[in-house]
Amino acid sequence: MDWIIILQAGIAAGTVLLFATVGEVLAERSGILNLGLEGMMLIGAMSGYSVAVNYGNPWLGLLVAMVAAGLLSLLHGFVTIHLQADQVVSGLSLTFLGTGLSLVFGEGLSKAGAISLLPKVTIPVLSAIPYLGDILFTDQSIMVYIGYLLAPAAWYYINYTRPGMHMRAVGEYPAAADTMGINVKGMRYLYTCVGGMLAGLAGATISLAISPGWFSHMTTSGQGWIAVGLTIFAQWNPLRAAAGSYAFGALRRLILDLQGPTKLLLWKNPFYYNPYWGFFLKMIPYAFTIVVLVIGSREAMRKRMGAPAALGVPYIRGQRGI
């Protein structure tokens, strides 16, 4: 096992989670809980891949993926913002709808041949840094670098810009934001859509860059839900979200690599000699999500901090809210 390769691949795998999680952080900070990440990621992965297969241009695929997932998220926005429906149930239906749509339209797509993928890039000077250069800046997909920029940008946007402050106000105390002349519903639509587009980007990042191809619902294999969990663990902070995403990416990669060698440290590798034990390895990311959630929830309880106060609560002008 080569640690450099595991971390390098882990960063790449984590980028997918990073896009989805940062998108969910933005949506939830404005007060909209969107549990439909898995469905939107699948739509993104399917439509992006489909466009890349049919038109030969992965960039166009990326764009279409973001638009498709963004449109789908607006449906969630309409139902929860204007029709004041329950956000949990609406998010679930979005998952069903997105999964169903992508399976119906992705029929036969798994047999498509090789396509041109998003390019891999090595950054000239930075890649010369020992260890870090190899892990972070050598032969990584272009999407990974976009991920490096996105998380700090989102963090800065939320904490230090005026529109970011408005977004937080809408998520914490919409009535006050409304009195200040901020368009509460408009802002919520905007960030729901941004969150959806990022989920689409995450999906297309899987199918066009990180693990290319369309494998029906196994393309995402629950990563959308892991991203929802990471949002809570991240305490709605994009930087923590990035750290969590990369850790999860590395974990996923480590699990794949654990089954290869005949020896683990000093002992015989049980996962090599009993291939069925691999199923227990596959449980780890999901079990770890639960562990991470417990840690996040306990910390939130202890520090008396938590979700944006208006998360999941529809805003109706003139009605007593939270």
Binding site: S93, L97, T99, V104
Partner: peptide, 17 residues
Amino acid sequence: SGISMLVQGIILFALIA
């Protein structure tokens, strides 16, 4: 394979809307 999932998703959306 996805059609019953799709229809179920629309049913749920239509219901809560």
